[in-house]
């Protein structure tokens, strides 16, 4: 927590910080990944959770196979158009806030599969926060991605989002902007600006 200060010098045990920072601190250090091991990268993902790389050091080892419990979707592997529907449903089922890591070149860009069945990058169906290149990426690289994501989470303003609807970070035009069954807020005001919501958000913030 960046600006943690003792509230008084008497040492009564109070600390003061911004609510934003407190929430971010909690969120970034307890990511619950949903390991979507679609193919080869999934094996490296398992290796990452395994004994040598030990993801627990970064607070992200509580892998759960139910999307309802997770806030980090790790798309590890080749996404095909047949699978895309399922992945989109999984993404929609995850409660907000949620982040996505595209692990491997397949999920980042389609990679070596420029073929009739493969989605050319998961960002065609859902917004991605961190892309990890490599085929498969070494677990170190994915751990680095998680650290990067933690830095990103640090910069978010959860309170503003809570009060005013979604922040700018998710508005990538890939489908976060309309009403989903899981959304706690009504974003209909943002629907009008699916690709450039900034103006609207500025207006909201006034």
């Amino acid at each position: 927590m960046g600006s943690l200060k003792p509230a008084d010098s008497e040492g009564l045990g109070f600390l003061a910080t911004r609510v934003d920072e407190l929430i971010n601190w909690g969120r970034k250090n307890s990511l619950w990944p949903m390991p979507l091991g679609l193919s080869c990268c999934g094996i490296e993902l398992m290796a990452m959770i395994g004994p040598k790389f030990d993801l627990a050091r970064f607070g992200a080892e509580a892998a759960r196979f139910s999307p309802r419990q997770c806030d980090l979707l790790v798309v590890a592997g080749t996404l095909t158009w047949k699978m895309a529907e399922a992945v989109r449903v999984i993404y929609d089922q995850m409660p907000d806030p949620k982040w996505v890591i595209a692990m491997g070149v397949c999920s980042s860009s389609g990679g070596m599969y420029d073929s009739y069945a493969v989605v050319q990058g998961v960002d065609s169906i859902l917004p991605v926060d961190v892309y990890v290149p490599g085929c498969p990426p070494r677990p170190d690289a994915v751990i680095d991605a998680i650290i990067k994501l933690q830095k990103k989470i640090e910069r978010e303003s959860p309170v503003r989002r809570l009060l005013k609807g979604p922040g700018v970070i998710d508005e990538t035009g890939t489908g976060r902007n309309f009403k989903q069954p899981n959304f706690a807020f009504d974003h209909s005001s943002l629907d009008l600006h699916p690709h450039d919501p900034k103006a609207k958000i500025e207006e909201l913030q006034k």
């Binding site: 895309a84 529907e85 073929s115 009739y116 069945a117 169906i125 069954p181």
Partner: peptide, 22 residues
């Protein structure tokens, strides 16, 4: 090799789903 409308089925499904939510 690149396929013919590889994403057609997904897009149809997606459009339907969006319409339902609306």
């Amino acid at each position: 090799h690149g396929g013919i409308e590889p994403d057609r089925l997904y897009r149809e499904w997606d459009a339907k789903r969006r319409a339902e939510w609306g």
